[in-house]
Amino acid sequence: MAFYASFGTVMLLLAVTAPAALLFGFGGAVAARSHFAPLRWFGKGYTAVVRGVPDIAFFLFFVIALDQAFEWLRHQVKCPDWDMPVRQGSDFVVCAAAKLPLSSSPQWVHEVYGFAIAVLTFAIVFGAFAANVLYGAMRAVPRAQTETAEAYGLSRRQTFWRILVPQMWVYALPGLSNLWMILIKATPLLFLLGVEDIVYWARELGGSKTQVYSYPHPDWRLYYFLALLVFYLALTRVSEVVLTRLTNRLSRGQATVAGEAQRRAA
């Protein structure tokens, strides 16, 4: 049963991470365009660093780093009169009240916390890619469009929200759809983050014996993984079809080659 529920976990992760990553990406792109230099450096540095290093290293890094960062912040707030250093040799020690999640909280809180950390990690990593795509898309909107807006006396803010943002999506879509495919294919890495996802259950249920049970069947992991493979192939195939449709829909009435072709055909 938990095996089937874990498919839901993967879908939930996709559903939550995609908007979150888009939000991070939007923030990153806006930061990279900013006129305020440190903010611009931050935006550009963010995308450059995340893209240059293997993603899996980031997944392993952020899970511990975020966890420790949260605990440290809570530690500062909740236990101001703690006099020992936080790092003692190879241990990371915070006061009991600052532990996250609290050691007294029930099991589901631990699971939700683990999942939330995973989502945040995915959003940070994929946000960098999305930032790059959106940054390119904002620059791809024809200059004439923004010039016209300026000529009509729109302020910078108005130009950005009313002209640039609505028009950039069609330019961003190829990159974003590519990113979506990559995101789908990155979901099995959840397993490494300690979330009990489909890879975890495939290993547990498929094996002939685990720590908890001993199954009557021999080693079936091969078939479980085969099923996962088919699941992912179906998922990518369906998204491919949907994204093609979406591209066609968005190209309608745009000042691009595809939009022009649609106008002629009609």
Binding site: L189, F225, L229, R237
Partner: peptide, 19 residues
């Protein structure tokens, strides 16, 4: 091309190892 590009490398590794 479809099978190797459409599925996660991670799953491919698992599958290959089990095979």
């Amino acid at each position: 091309i479809f099978i190797f590009r459409g599925s996660p490398l991670f799953i491919q590794f698992f599958l290959a190892y089990e095979t």
